[in-house]
Design a protein around this nucleic acid. Structure first.
Lengths: 128, 128
DNA sequence: CCATATCACTTGCAGATTGCAAGCATCAAG
DNA sequence: CTTGATGCTTGCAATCTGCAAGTGATATGG
């Protein structure tokens, strides 16, 4: 039986054994959680991520999708071969980031005037 | 006379009106939340932040402390004049980041093998 | 005194990362 | 045959990071 993600180990991949620091080593940058947010908003395709209001640069998007897949947080599924076209889905490991995003959403709502709540937050479709 | 936090406004300071994206515009990098974590762990002085196991570069630390203060998340308090020596404290706005750190800690605990939970998590000392 | 040390930074600079723009492969439509 | 869309990759300038060294200001040991 195939495991979802071979999790990296210390001390190679992480700065310290602190859980917070280690999470930041995986998703602690300007763009990664934006992509994860989009997945929670029901987006699955490259073009949908690109169309988000933050305008992620295309090379950054491609690289982050690879890293998220390598980290076992998302799964890439081809829905046609020629030309190759894929959709991206959260794994259960990736979907477990939900509480982090919710906490950020709450903080933003309470402490940044002018932010707008997205209406559509469906429970994410998960693929292992 | 300086107010605690004149919150910045759209569209200058933020990529979009999404609360998650806006939070990431403030704390979405490799180091900022490490400093905030240290404040939650009861650290208050420059040397204490530097001594953390992640070994933050000193110029980065100085810059992040300035940014956190500018964002109204921490308060700098001098406890002597010559030479000038200060301690840093979370504001209530900064302390409200607690749920985000807790969610990260939980995710790390569940999904990254080998991370170690810090024992000492006191309710933070808040200064406005 | 004077040398050495410490603390909280600042400065210089090489190297890594980011982001804009353009290119590329594949197929579809007109 | 030309134009367009999609999902990327590549080139490169500008920005950011991080290591090392420097800078006051004071304290300490000999």
């Amino acid at each position: 039986m195939k495991k979802t993600a071979p999790p990296p180990s210390f001390p190679d991949s992480y700065r310290s054994t602190c859980p917070v620091a280690s999470v930041l080593d995986i998703v602690g940058d300007k763009w990664t959680l934006i992509v994860v947010r989009d997945l929670f908003l029901g987006k699955h395709r490259y073009g949908e991520f690109q169309a988000s209001p933050e305008s992620i640069p295309t090379n950054i998007l491609a690289e982050r999708l690879k890293r998220l897949e390598a980290a076992g947080l998302i799964k890439k599924e081809f829905y046609q071969d020629n030309p190759p076209r894929a959709e991206y889905f959260l794994t259960s490991r990736g979907a477990a980031l939900g509480p982090i995003l919710r906490a950020m959403r709450e903080w933003g709502k309470e402490h940044i005037p002018g932010v707008v709540f997205p209406e559509k937050i469906a429970p994410p479709e998960i693929r292992e």
